[in-house]
């Protein structure tokens, strides 16, 4: 019983891990993209259309990521190419993605697919408790954690990661040193879009194997909050996503068991917890702002 509940927590966290990790990379490069929700929806509709049309779930995952990256590309075109205000452009991207995914997805409504299969890792999955929990998940759950680990390694251990962080922290200096600020940011935004697309794809491929307009229901915004929650450090994204998922599932389980706390209050809990943690960590500036990209949201003009 507990095992099943924890598994539900893991699965409900996967889209958040994808989307928040992607946004984290974009933000570390100095770009605030508020269009996560729109990119997730485009990824979701792209993945479902592919799965429904071809029956190939692996292709569907790839198309989901590509659709997200393409939508991120639209953001990059305006925010980087034409140096528009990032906040306004991001909000517009959410509205654009919501609308376009609804339009593209209209003929797909009412159809169902078979979701992703489980991948059971031999031997390890026979372990009591953790076996079922950690070693017989679906492929995208493993992919989420692998990509998260990759991002953590990239940002901390590689030269490319260093350049990306430099661009986010001080784009003028990075430019003076000869790095192409816009190219780095473009790649970061595209990666963020791909990750949001993968997060979106997880919904129709795994959680609820159908397409429905606006099915992300605000998860893109939670991913954005998680990046701040994680104080721009990859592994804390995982912690944040699991806490958020954990409280969500706990409040549902509490209701099923007949706890007499008002359910409206319980529904608020995940958000309250997020705010509470934000307040606590922001009291410690060193902790919360040590990795804050100083150029976040600022427009870069070369040659100024």
């Amino acid at each position: 019983m507990l095992e099943q509940l924890l598994l539900t927590v893991l699965m409900t966290s996967v889209p958040l891990i994808f989307a928040a990790t992607g946004e984290l990379v974009a933000e570390r490069s100095g770009v605030l993209n508020l269009g996560v929700e729109g990119m997730m929806l485009m990824g979701a509709v792209g993945a479902f259309a592919t799965a429904f049309g071809t029956g190939n779930l692996w292709l569907a995952i790839i198309v989901g990521g590509l659709a997200g990256a393409l939508t991120g590309g639209v953001f990059a075109l305006f925010a980087l190419g034409f140096a528009t205000n990032q906040v306004a452009t991001g909000l517009a991207l959410t509205i654009f993605g919501t609308g376009l995914s609804g339009l593209v997805g209209a003929p797909l409504v009412g159809h169902a697919i078979d979701g992703l299969p489980q991948i059971t890792i031999p031997v390890l999955s026979n372990l009591p408790f953790v076996g079922a929990l950690l070693f017989s998940l679906d492929p995208m759950a493993y992919l989420a954690v692998a990509l998260l680990a990759g991002v953590a390694w990239f940002l901390k251990r590689t030269r490319g990661g260093l350049v990306l962080r430099a661009v986010g922290d001080n784009h003028d200096s990075a430019h003076a040193l000869g790095y192409s600020v816009l190219r780095v940011r473009l790649l970061a935004v595209l990666f963020g879009g791909m990750m949001a697309g993968l997060g979106g794809a997880y919904l129709p491929l795994m959680l609820t194997p159908h397409w429905a307009e606006g099915m992300t229901a605000g998860r893109g915004w939670i991913a954005l909050a998680l990046v701040v929650f994680a104080s721009w450090l990859p592994w804390r994204v995982l912690v944040g996503a699991l806490i958020f998922g954990g409280i969500t599932i706990m409040q549902l389980a509490g209701q099923a068991r007949g706890w007499t706390v008002p359910s409206q209050f319980l529904s608020m809990l995940p958000y309250l917890a997020t705010i509470a943690v934000l307040v606590v960590i922001s009291r410690n500036r060193e902790f919360s702002l040590a990795n804050f990209p100083s150029c976040l949201g600022r427009v870069f003009h070369a040659g100024k």
Binding site: T8, L203, T208, A212, M215, A217, A256, R257
Partner: peptide, 23 residues
């Protein structure tokens, strides 16, 4: 037993709540 989702329409949350009921 009743789980209030506090939404008419949130597929993921509905699915989560269903999984919790089954668990």
């Amino acid at each position: 037993s009743v789980i209030w989702v506090n939404s008419w329409y949130d597929p993921v949350k509905e699915s989560d709540a269903a999984k919790v009921h089954i668990a």
